[in-house]
């Protein structure tokens, strides 16, 4: 095993180009577990922690450009307003120690369906900034996950940053685990209201081979909100709409039975989380809308 320590992003890309099998390591919270437990013996470890810019973010414009290695703790503390869904998801990641090290780049690189960031990214809308010596490209998050622990990166590419749309409305994230802290998701759900486009987006974690959106549920809800004039009148969403949304979210799952939970439970829980997060976000939206009206 060789340990490569590029001092700059350019050096990192060059190293990755030269050694496409090199395993990038930043927070180490996935890679080191595999090494400690002898599940993985990469020929090269590519340490990205010397590259300062990966731990930085820019919040100007429409989206936040989040460096791949910004620790979850920083996201929770500093980006709660711009990225509320991701901030909530970050808070559910493992433990304080892990949140101090791990970042979204690692979640994306590993592409485990159980990664906590995925549902929030899917719901908010995001693009993955992938780069190699050949150049840079933006991969829409919807196209990023290609299979169980597989993603759209080419062997010579590294994740430099994620561009996440700044919230234009309430977002929520909820995850089920069988412990009240430090737990891997049995399943997870992210929801973002986008009042500017009058759309909702969802993200489901750990309930299909990859993180997925519940597209039919989104379409149903978009139509229902539109038809009922909900975006304008700020009325309470009717229970039947919430229920149908939940049912469609459950239907978007394609889960398995494993040691963490049954497929049947995952479908059920995603439905419950979908209904609850819809209620929370919508109540929040109504509250904001009411205040705006009051001022006007």
């Amino acid at each position: 095993m060789d340990f490569l320590r590029p001092a700059s992003w350019e050096e990192a890309l060059a190293a990755k180009a030269e050694h496409p099998t090199a395993v990038p390591i930043a927070g180490g919270t996935d890679v080191m577990v595999e090494i400690n437990f002898d599940h993985r013996r990469p020929e090269y470890l590519l340490d990205l922690t010397r590259i300062g810019e990966l731990g930085e973010w820019e919040a100007g414009g429409e989206s936040v450009r989040l460096g791949a290695s910004v620790p979850y703790t920083r996201i929770m503390e500093n980006l709660r307003r711009e990225l509320p869904g991701l901030a909530l998801a970050s808070h559910t990641v493992a433990s304080p120690q892990i949140r101090n090290r791990g970042g979204v780049g690692g979640n994306l690189g590993t592409a485990s369906p159980a990664g906590d960031a995925h549902p929030a990214l899917l719901a908010a809308g995001a693009e993955v900034e992938a780069e190699s010596v050949r150049g840079s490209r933006l991969i829409p998050i919807d196209d990023f996950y290609t299979g169980v622990k597989r993603n759209a990166l080419a062997p010579d590419e590294l994740i430099r940053a994620v561009r996440i749309k700044k919230a234009d409305g309430p977002q929520q994230f909820s995850k089920v685990g069988t412990r009240n802290a430090m737990v891997i998701a049995v399943c997870a759900f992210g929801l973002a209201l986008h009042p500017e486009t009058r759309t909702v987006r969802t993200g489901i974690g750990s309930a299909a081979p990859t993180p997925v959106r519940a597209r039919a549920a989104e379409e149903f809800l978009n139509a229902a909100l539109d038809e009922g004039g909900f975006w304008d009148n700020g009325k309470i969403i009717t229970p039947s709409v919430a229920k149908q949304f939940a049912t469609l979210c459950s239907a978007a799952c394609n889960p398995i039975d494993d040691v963490r939970g049954t497929a049947s439970y995952r479908r059920h829980a995603v439905g419950v989380m979908a209904r609850r997060t819809l209620t929370w976000t919508w109540e929040s939206y109504r509250g904001t809308a009411a205040r705006t009206e009051g001022v006007a």
């Binding site: 340990f3 320590r5 390591i25 927070g27 180490g28 919270t29 890679v31 080191m32 577990v33 090494i35 400690n36 470890l45 340490d47 922690t49 433990s95 304080p96 120690q97 892990i98 101090n100 090290r101």
Partner: peptide, 15 residues
Amino acid sequence: GVPVCSCLVAAGQAE
């Protein structure tokens, strides 16, 4: 200054 699990820090990263 930041609390971390030292089992998940590769030795080379501590340089």
